[in-house]
Structure formats: C-alpha cells, structure tokens
Amino acid sequence: MPRLRPDLDPLRETLLLTLHARALDARSPRPILGDLHSARIAERIDYDFARLKVKPSLVCGTALRAKKLDEAVRAFAAAHPDAVVLDLGCGLDTRALRCDLPGGIDWYDVDFPDVVALRSQFLPEISHRVGADLTTSGWLDPLPRDRPAMIVAEGVLPFLPGAAFQRLTRQLTEHFRTGELALNGYTRFAAWSMKYHPAIKAIGISAAQGFDDAREPEAWQAGLTLADEQLLTRAPEVREFPQPLRAMTRAMGCSAWLSRQGTRVLRYRF
C-alpha cells in the first residue's frame, strides 16, 4: 500500500505529533495505551517523524492522558446508553475504535474540514464526521440537543485564541441539555512553556492558553461543575514508564503544584 504525504499547515501538523506519540507507545515493550490502530496509520504516512524529536516523557504523557479520557468516555456511555459523544479536535485519533461503544451511542468526530477529509483516508466510517472551525458558530446546529453528551477536548485548549475556548464551552453547554466535558487541563505556565518543547518548536507554532485553578471554568457562565481532577503523575500506570522518567514522575507526584504543570485530566458536569 503506498504511503500518503499529508499537506498540513503548522497547526494541523500537531495531529502528527500526537499520532506519532501513540504509535511509539504501541510499539514499546510496556505500552500504556497500546493503540495499534495509530501505529498502523503512522506507518502509512510519508512524513519525517524523526524531526519531531519526541521524547519518552511526551510518549508516556500522551498515551496516559488518552487512556484516562477513554476511560471517562466509557464510564459515561455505560451510565448513558443513549449518549452523544463529541471528540473535538480529533485529528487522526482513533478513540472511537479504542472505546468500541455500543450501537446506541452516536459519535461525532470534529475537526477542520481538511482534517476530516484526511481521516477518511485512514479510518473506517464508524462515526459522524463534522468539518468545522471550533471558533465559529452554527456547526453544532445539526447535532441532537435532547440527549446527554460526553464532550472530549484533548489538546484543544492551548491552541484556541483568546477567550475562544470559553465561548466554545458556553456554546456546547447551551446546545446540550446535560453531560460532561473532559479535557487535559494545561496551567498557564504549562501552556506557555509548550512553545519551547522540541516537538512543538519543530512544527513552528506558539501555544499560550491555560488556567491554573481547576475550578476556574465554573466561572465561565457555562454551567460547569468540577467533577474530577486527575493528576497523572500519581496514576498507577506510571509504573510502566521507563527509567529515569518513572522516578522523576513519581518525585513530581509528591507535589500537587508540580503535578499540575505536567498532565492532568479534568472532568466537568453540566
């Protein structure tokens, strides 16, 4: 099968970074997420992944946060068998395949139109695909309003300009009657420091959005209530990290402040 070379601008190119990280985890001796779908997709892409200079910390962090968000989706679907799932900024993520939810769930993968078109070249049509710019209005209108919604926003927060993420959150909670929002929550420092990460520098973008207090979104007038804050430095899966990353992560886990500068997964009810 011939390999495909995607034509992506720097913002969209970040989807290759997370895809590569998941693929490296799947190929590792002790995978955390074990996403073989991502590994197979990466093999079909003509791209110099080595230029991203992905380190074990990014591989493990990406795999662990994806696993925790998958768990949140499965738990919500188990409690709400008629739910709608939205995966915002989905890129080439294979979450719908990994979660393998029952037929009563309607899954919507949302990203820029050209990214949605790219997905069709690598992934089966097991979900509804919505091509949209998340900073615009109207793209939610065709989606059902009267069903509980599980909304996943992995990696979206830092890349939306200004208060766009807050506006997006209000649009989502106004559209859906009830549900949950799950995301990996960057502090302001963590989001700011992303631009110095070798992989982000290689792509050439700047990311700057974040919030420190997990309860801050409760003041966004979106009806959010914090349900859970997981500090992933304290997750049991850290035992699968390679050394010396495992020891460093466990040391960070002794401090809540340091842990929040790493990866945390936040869940909000509305």
Rank of each mutant, 00 (worst) to 15 (best):
R40N: 14
K201E: 15
E229K: 06
A26E: 00
A190V: 07
P102T: 10
M150K: 02
D228T: 14
F49W: 08
F165W: 13
M194D: 04
D87Q: 14
E13A: 00
K53H: 11
A164I: 00
V130L: 09
G262K: 08
P113D: 12
P161T: 00
L143A: 11
C60D: 00
E125T: 07
E125D: 15
E229Q: 10
L19N: 07
L143D: 08
A42V: 10
P142I: 14
H175N: 10
G34F: 12
D82N: 15
T233R: 03
I105L: 13
R267S: 12
Q166T: 13
G89Y: 02
A26Y: 00
G131Y: 04
D213F: 00
A39E: 14
L168Q: 11
A214E: 02
K201H: 03
W139M: 11
T18Y: 02
E240H: 15
I45D: 00
R246L: 11
P161N: 10
D82Y: 09
Q121E: 15
D93L: 07
F49L: 08
P242L: 07
G104C: 12
L232F: 02
A23F: 01
L33A: 07
L33V: 03
K68M: 09
R234H: 04
K53M: 06
R3K: 13
D213G: 06
P29D: 14
F112S: 12
L183G: 00
A202M: 03
M194P: 01
D106W: 08
F211S: 00
D9T: 02
E218C: 14
A164Q: 00
L101T: 04
A164W: 04
I205Q: 03
V115H: 00
R3M: 09
I45A: 01
E43N: 08
L24S: 06
G91H: 11
I32P: 04
L64Q: 09
S137I: 06
V156H: 09
I126N: 09
A247M: 11
A191H: 08
R98W: 14
Y47A: 09
A75H: 05
V73N: 02
F241P: 10
S57N: 05
V265P: 03
G179F: 04
F159D: 13
R119F: 08
G34H: 09
R74Y: 01
P113A: 07
F49E: 03
F122W: 08
F76K: 01
G34K: 05
Q121S: 13
G179D: 01
E237Q: 15
A251Q: 06
R98Y: 07
E174D: 14
L231K: 05
R27D: 15
G155T: 11
V73Q: 02
K201S: 08
D106K: 08
L17D: 01
V54L: 12
L4V: 14
I105D: 10
P2T: 13
G91Y: 02
E174N: 06
A227K: 15
P10Y: 03
L266K: 04
V238S: 07
D48I: 01
P2D: 05
G155L: 13
S193P: 02
A214P: 15
T62G: 12
D35E: 03
D93C: 06
R30I: 06
V152P: 11
L266N: 05
